[in-house]
């Protein structure tokens, strides 16, 4: 069940991610520098399905979501570091996994870096950093660190009121979306719905095996690495098989669309993507989650750690995108200046 369920969910998720081009690096970046919000809308659909779905399933007693303690220094530092790494890696954690399936060798370098980065922090040589940063927590009246408990919402009605207060403006915003032009593959509605339903299904299938968490990529990657290297299967769960299924599902989707091609970036970019992946791995393991574990699953429980970490992933993404933009502009200006000075006098206009 764990293996078959995990691989099947992973195949479907990989297929959806590839067809929808669901990259959260692009979603987060688009607030800054760009005007296109298509992938932000896809993310909003995923969250709508999961915030409402998780609350409903918790109410029904199907789930008892595990929520990270509010170790705010780890959420802030880890999130920021992850955001920086994501830009250099050319994709978020899930983005890197599915692009590997498509044959992008730079993403494979990023994945190797991600595996090393997460292993270094999670029980590895740099575990001290994680312990230090997670040592300071803010207590939310002795209860789980969620927005519900932070606001002291005790009754079911009050909790649903908060969910409605978040969901209704989101639905209004989504309903006013302009037509998505220049579409290749799935639009934001279909992509968000597919990823959202699969993320919710992961909660349910995990709960059936006593794992009270939804979709994630960081911990399952660490668990898989540990199992492959040491034979210790303690951390293996349905999520570990999902991360195996994702690149395979993405490969099948890309193959069908004629997009599965081995492609090598230039050497500098290859190294940068590896470094970005490693940075992303360090950040994710410090913060206890990536753009999926925190920004989808954790946010679905309205966990404060996940919300904080997501905010700092975005900040890291914007800072690094700004640096990339400036450095590329300088490079281009230097090239133009060199070209102008190479043209003999009198020929410039």
């Amino acid at each position: 069940m764990i293996v078959a369920g995990g691989i099947s969910l992973g195949l479907l998720l990989g297929y959806a991610l590839q067809r929808g081009g669901y990259c959260m690096n692009t979603a987060f970046r688009s607030f800054y520098l760009e005007k296109d919000r298509s992938l932000v809308r896809a993310w909003a659909v995923v969250l709508l399905i999961n915030v409402i779905g998780v609350a409903l399933l918790t109410e029904l007693g199907v789930l008892l979501p595990e929520v990270a303690p509010f170790f705010w220094p780890a959420a802030i530092v880890g999130g920021f570091v992850f955001g920086i790494g994501m830009v250099l890696a050319g994709g978020c954690a899930s983005g890197t996994y599915y692009r590997c399936g498509r044959g992008m060798l730079g993403s494979i370098a990023a994945l190797v870096g991600f595996v090393i980065g997460t292993a270094l922090i999670d029980g590895g040589a740099l575990v001290e950093i994680q312990q230090q940063l997670r040592g300071t927590t803010i207590d939310v009246s002795g209860r789980e660190a969620t927005l519900f408990n932070l606001l002291g919402l005790e009754s079911t009605a009050a909790r649903w009121l908060l969910i409605a207060g978040i969901s209704i403006p989101a639905i209004v915003w989504l309903s006013r979306a302009p037509k998505q032009r220049f579409l290749i593959g799935w639009g934001w509605r279909k992509t968000g719905a597919a990823v959202g339903v699969l993320a919710l299904a992961t909660w349910v299938i995990s709960a059936m095996q006593g794992r009270d968490f939804g979709l994630s990529f960081t911990q399952p990657t660490v668990a898989l690495t540990r199992f492959l290297v040491t034979g210790d299967s303690a951390g293996i769960s349905v999520a570990s098989f999902i991360v195996i299924g994702v690149p395979i599902g993405a490969f099948l989707a890309a193959k069908a669309a004629g997009e599965a091609i081995l492609r090598m970036p230039d050497p500098g970019r290859f190294v940068r993507q590896f470094g970005g992946g490693a940075t992303m791995g360090l950040g994710a393991s410090i913060a206890g989650g990536c753009n999926i574990g925190h920004s989808i699953t954790g946010v679905s429980t309205l966990g404060i750690t996940a919300i904080t970490s997501t905010a700092f992933i975005m900040l890291g993404c914007w800072v690094m995108t700004g640096i990339v933009y400036r450095s590329e502009r300088r490079k281009m200006e230097a090239e133009i200046a060199a070209m102008r000075s190479a043209v003999p006098q009198g020929e410039t206009s």
Binding site: R29, M264, R269, T321, E328
Partner: peptide
């Protein structure tokens, strides 16, 4: 052979 964000940054 570029990936995001370089594709958008360089086009812009």
């Amino acid at each position: 052979s570029e990936v995001c964000p370089y594709t958008f940054v360089k086009s812009k």
